[in-house]
C-alpha cells in the first residue's frame, strides 16, 4: 500500500468548512472506505474546523491547517490553529460543555470527534493555539476485529 499525504491551509471562514471535509473525504476515497466511515470522517473534520473558526479565532480571520496521512489502512488527521487556545482541555472535551451557551452551541463537538473516530487527542497552549489529532481505520473489518 502506498502511503499518501495531504496538507490544506485556508482562512477560518465558515464557508471553508464544507471544502475541508469534502477534500479530506476525497483524499481517502481511493481506499474504498464504507459510506458510514466516510461520513464519520467528514463529520469529525467539520467539528474540528468549526472549533477553529468559532472558538480559536472567535470570528476573526486566522489560518487553519488540516494535514492528512494515509498509512496502510489508517487515516491520520491533524487539524491545527494558532488561535486563543483552550483554557481547560479536560472540561472542554466533556459532553455539552460550551463556552458560548448563548450561541446555540451544543457543546458536542469534541464528543462527536471522539465517538466517530478510532483515536483522538487534543493539545493546546493558551495564547498559541490548538492541535487535534484523529485517526480512523479505513477498513471497517479492522475495527470490528480489534
Amino acid at each position: 500500500m502506498t502511503n499518501n499525504y495531504l496538507k490544506l491551509q485556508f482562512y477560518s471562514l465558515p464557508q471553508n468548512q464544507a471544502f475541508a471535509r469534502d477534500a479530506v473525504a476525497a483524499f481517502c476515497v481511493d481506499l474504498n472506505p464504507s459510506l458510514a466511515v466516510l461520513s464519520d470522517i467528514k463529520t469529525a473534520v467539520s467539528e474540528a474546523v468549526t472549533n477553529c473558526t468559532v472558538h480559536a479565532y472567535r470570528g476573526n480571520l486566522g489560518m487553519i491547517t488540516v494535514e492528512c496521512e494515509i498509512e496502510d489502512k489508517s487515516l491520520h488527521i491533524k487539524v491545527s490553529d494558532t488561535g486563543r487556545g483552550i483554557d481547560d482541555i479536560e472540561k472542554a472535551v466533556r459532553p455539552f460543555f460550551t463556552t458560548l451557551p448563548g450561541d446555540e452551541r451544543s457543546g458536542m463537538g469534541f464528543t462527536i470527534m471522539q465517538t466517530f473516530m478510532d483515536e483522538f487527542k487534543v493539545n493546546s497552549i493558551k495564547g498559541e493555539g490548538t492541535v487535534v489529532y484523529m485517526t480512523k481505520q479505513l477498513d471497517p473489518e479492522v475495527v470490528e476485529n480489534v
Partner: peptide, 13 residues
Amino acid sequence: AFMDSTGIGFLIG
C-alpha cells in the same frame, strides 16, 4: 445531506 453538531444546537434552539 450533511449535518454536524450545529444541527443539535439548531434543533434545541
